[in-house]
């Protein structure tokens, strides 16, 4: 019987049990060629009458079964076959028998209970899973050649492979490159170096000029230069000369700047006072240079959004 794979055992413990538990079948991938520490798998199919359910508590518990055998895992699957129901147990054992010669070892059998609950009461059926055997082989010769130091029989302790840093370095370099690209995009958008001379950002260039002029303090010439710079920026944005009376038309052509209507009107008013009226000193009192810088900063933000 040990030679048969799959092994088939039919169980006939009593007449009643024969009727309730139809068959018990033990299948193993191979009954030979196992070494110390190997996993031994077995598949047990139990076919029972419909209505009978497996009692989970009657299954073998994972753990050490004998001093040389561990049960590692028990997996249960249920399916209906024909008019009966099939319970399949997938058992994984681990063998710790250190064999000196090739020999057969027996895995002990066990009993699994099934219960059928009806109105008249519960019926219990027991399925006897028979023991089955497998052949194990030794790992070494019986008498290895004699050595001076018995420690040299042992396999070495092993070494730790060093951690692989390459993916981290590549990832870091890749993200740094992407960050640099994104910074370049930001610099282009904000007309930072080396994109200071790019077109389409008249107010940004004006703001840089105004900041340089603001550093010179309360200087009338600087104030006039600042007014002119903002005038040039407005002209460049519109593509034509923009004077105080042109403001409504300018805002109609560039509705995004309507938010700063009051600021622009104040600027054009100050400009008129400075160039065609009392002079820059009076205009500076109406609209200080700092206010022009603040206005230009807001215009720059609008310019970036449009």
């Amino acid at each position: 019987m040990r030679r048969l794979v799959p092994l088939l055992f039919l169980l006939c413990s009593s007449l009643a049990a024969e009727a309730q538990v139809r068959s018990v079948e033990v299948r193993t991938p191979r009954p030979f060629g196992y070494f110390l520490g190997d996993l031994i798998r077995a598949q047990i199919d139990i076919v029972v009458e419909p209505g009978f359910a497996l009692q989970a508590a009657s299954l073998p518990q994972p753990g050490a079964i004998t001093y040389w055998l561990d049960l590692r895992n028990v997996a249960v699957t249920q399916a209906s076959v024909g008019d009966g129901s099939r319970v399949r147990l997938d058992l994984t054992y681990q063998n710790f028998y250190a064999a000196l010669d090739a020999r057969a070892l027996e895995i002990p059998g066990f009993v699994v209970s099934f219960v059928s609950d009806t109105d008249k009461g519960a019926t219990t059926a027991k399925a006897q899973v028979p023991p089955w055997s497998f052949n194990i082989s030794p790992l070494r010769e019986v008498q290895p050649p004699a050595r001076e130091d018995p420690r040299s029989y042992l396999r070495p302790d092993g070494r730790v492979a060093s951690l692989d840093t390459q993916p981290l370095v590549i990832g870091g370099a890749g993200f740094t490159a992407m960050a640099l690209l994104a910074f370049a995009g930001l610099a282009w958008d904000r007309t930072w170096w080396p994109f200071a001379k790019r077109g389409g950002r008249a107010f940004a260039g004006c703001l840089r000029r105004l900041r340089a002029l603001a550093g010179r303090g309360e200087d009338e010439a600087a104030y006039e230069d600042a007014l002119l710079a903002l005038h040039r920026a407005l002209d460049e944005t519109d593509g034509r000369r923009v004077l105080a009376d042109d403001l409504p038309a300018f805002l109609a052509r560039h509705p995004a700047y309507a938010r700063e209507r009051a600021g622009l009107a104040a600027f054009l008013d100050a400009s008129r006072h400075s160039f065609f009226g009392p002079g820059p000193a009076a205009a500076m009192r109406r609209l200080p240079l700092a206010d022009i810088v603040a206005l230009t900063r807001k215009l720059t933000a609008i310019e970036r959004e449009s």
Binding site: F35, L36, G37, L139, R155, P156, G158
Partner: peptide
Amino acid sequence: LWDAKFNLDV
């Protein structure tokens, strides 16, 4: 872990 199998045998 074959080295463990071998040394367990030893």
